[in-house]
Amino acid sequence: MDPDGLADVERVPHGGSDDRDLVDFSANTNPVRPAGVADVYEAALADATRYADGFDDFRAAAAEYVGRESDDVAHGTDRDDHGAHHGTDDAGCTADDVIPTAGGLAALRLAFGVTVSPGDRVLVPEPSFGEYAREIRLQGGDPVGVAHGELLDRDPADYAAAVVCNPNNPTGELRERDALDAFRTRCRAVGTPLVVDEAFLDFTDAPSLAGEPGAIVVRSLTKMFGLPGIRAGFAVAVGDLGDRLRTARPTWALSTPAAAVGTHCLRQTDFVERTRERVAGERTRMREALSERYAVAPSDAPFLLVDVGDERADPDAAVETVLARARDGGVAVRDARTFERLDSHVRVAVRRPHENDLLLDALLDR
């Protein structure tokens, strides 16, 4: 971290409502949690009287979860003693490639901490998660904003790193795998690490980039498993990038209860599949209904970006009207004007059917 840059770095606004009288659509966390979480947490307290490190079960569960547990013979790749890949670019994730962190944001800080030096430029998508720019500035770097739909076409040379959010937050679209692979290959050719935030990828059936050379993949348990306060996540990288992350990571990266709960959640495959099905169905229903009145972007994520402005209205007034209408209807939605390049948008999470009905009633005056 660059001490000289701290005075110029501000906090980033996020979703999440403290008003318990409102149904919160401003944060994209699953309102449902896997069965057994409380029991696992309580059982782990007995082991919390001693220091925990290694987290072998958590790392194994994480590697399996990203669906890329490597079969080097099948993939035709070999690894050296440091986990570097030789032969083909085809790769996979093993437990040794997983670096546990206290949530996805801690993984992002670690990723930028080992790639960005003061004065470095970093490619970041806009609009997207505001913490990318903040964390880069904390390292003394210069975040260079690029329209999110154009980032994969940029030349990554002369940048210390490039960032991709997949699916992108707040727009919701999933990147095409061929385009993402081509960009990673170009990044690797010029020595530019690719930081891939996959916080919402587990709501899709798309494969992770975890284990791919030249990439640092960041994952979180916050969104799918609805446990933002647990603070469990991980990064995945191989070769020199993996070595640097392992060297720089905090010695006690997770609490014992967080590691236990994380391991339990990462193994709940039926829960994940049920959540995907519910979100996909409800997202389609919500988009069709909201599109009767607003412009709603297509999404592969558990949220929708809604443009509530029109040619005749002041954008700020239009957003304020919708925010007030939502509150009056008992729901909270995310003011998306805090994202770069957005001025007339709100973002709404996809929750359970009866809750989504409340949102539709409020925003559509039903």
Rank of each mutant, 00 (worst) to 15 (best):
R231Q: 12
E69M: 07
V308F: 12
R267S: 14
P315Y: 10
P13F: 10
W252S: 03
A297D: 08
H86F: 15
R20D: 11
A189Y: 10
D365N: 13
L152A: 12
F271P: 00
R59M: 08
L22P: 06
E198K: 05
E64D: 15
L6R: 14
L123G: 07
F55S: 00
V217Y: 04
S208T: 10
V319P: 03
L108G: 06
N30C: 12
A324H: 14
L254A: 10
A280R: 14
T251R: 15
T338L: 11
Q268R: 15
R351T: 01
F183Y: 14
D343Q: 13
V236P: 01
V308N: 08
R246T: 08
E10C: 01
L221S: 08
N166E: 07
H345K: 05
F203R: 05
R327Q: 13
T263K: 06
H354M: 02
A44G: 03
A336P: 02
A235R: 09
D39V: 04
G119E: 01
R59D: 11
P3H: 10
L194G: 12
L364P: 05
R267N: 09
D81L: 15
G76F: 12
D357H: 12
Q268N: 06
V196G: 02
D357Y: 00
A349S: 15
A133K: 06
D181R: 14
D310G: 09
L342I: 05
D96A: 15
